[in-house]
Design a protein around this nucleic acid. Structure first.
Lengths: 115, 115
DNA sequence: TAGCGCGCTATGAAATCCGTAGCAACGATT
DNA sequence: AATCGTTGCTACGGATTTCATAGCGCGCTA
C-alpha cells in the first residue's frame, strides 16, 4: 500500500517533498480529484451515494481514496456523511476553473478533430 | 495501453465523458501534472532535461505522459524542445494556486502534526 | 426474526508503473 | 573515418495499483 504523501517528506516524484509535488502525488491518484469534486458539488453524502455518483468507482478504491483524503485533512466525516473540510473546499475552488478550461478544451477538440 | 481520455466520450470515471472528468482522467495519471508543471516552470527543455528535473520519473512513463499530453494538445515539441501549448499554459495557470494551497497545507500539517 | 441499507473488506485478475539497460540517430571531435 | 557524447526513446521483468465482484457485520424497522 502506497504511503500517504506529506509535504516535506520524500514523495513519489520528489525527494525534497516540495508541497506541490506531495499534492500532485495525492491528487494524481486515480479518482482522487473526482471524489473531492463530487463531494464538493453534491454536499454531504454517504459512502454508497458517493459511490453511485462516481458511476464506475470500486468500493475498495473509494475507501482508499477517502482514507487518504481524510488523513490529508481534505475530507472529514460528519453526521450526514462525508464532507470536504475548509481546506478541501479550498482545493476544490481551485479545481473549478479547471472545469472551465476543460470545456474549452472540449470545444477545441470538437473543432479540430470532429468524430 | 490506456486510451487517451477525450471529453464527450466515455472515460474512466464517467460514461458521459463530462469534460472535467476527462481532464481528471488525463491529469490523474501518475506524473501528468508534474510534467506539465515542470515544463511550464522551466520553459522549453529536452527529454533528458525534463527527466532530470522530474528526479524520479522513468523514461517509459515520461514518454507515455508526453505522448498523452501532446495528443491532448497541452504540450508540443518545438525546435528547442518540449513546450506547453497555450492551452497547456492555461491549465498550468490554474495549477499555480494549487501550489499556494499546498504550502498552506504543509504549514497546517506542521502545526498539527510535527514530526 | 427477517429484511433492509449501510460502511466497508476480501479476493484474484488486469492494468499501470517502476528501474534498468541499451539501441539508433545525430553532431562534434580527433 | 573512427570515436565520442548527447538525445530520444524502446524493451523488459518485476512491483504496485486499480479493477469488478462478492459478501460480511452492523444497526434499524417491521
Amino acid at each position: 500500500m502506497a504511503k500517504l504523501p506529506k509535504p516535506g517528506q520524500p514523495v513519489r516524484g520528489s525527494r525534497s517533498g516540495a508541497p506541490i509535488m506531495a499534492l500532485f502525488d495525492l491528487l494524481g491518484r486515480r479518482w482522487a480529484m473526482g471524489v473531492l469534486w463530487t463531494l464538493s458539488e453534491g454536499g454531504a453524502m454517504t459512502f454508497r451515494e458517493l459511490q453511485d455518483r462516481c458511476e464506475t468507482i470500486s468500493p475498495s478504491v473509494l475507501n482508499q481514496r477517502l482514507g487518504e483524503l481524510k488523513q490529508a485533512g481534505f475530507v472529514t466525516r460528519s453526521a450526514r456523511g462525508y464532507v470536504p473540510t475548509p481546506l478541501g473546499e479550498r482545493i476544490y475552488r481551485h479545481l473549478v476553473p479547471l472545469g472551465d478550461a476543460a470545456r474549452d478544451w472540449s470545444d477545441i477538440l470538437d473543432q479540430s478533430d470532429p468524430v
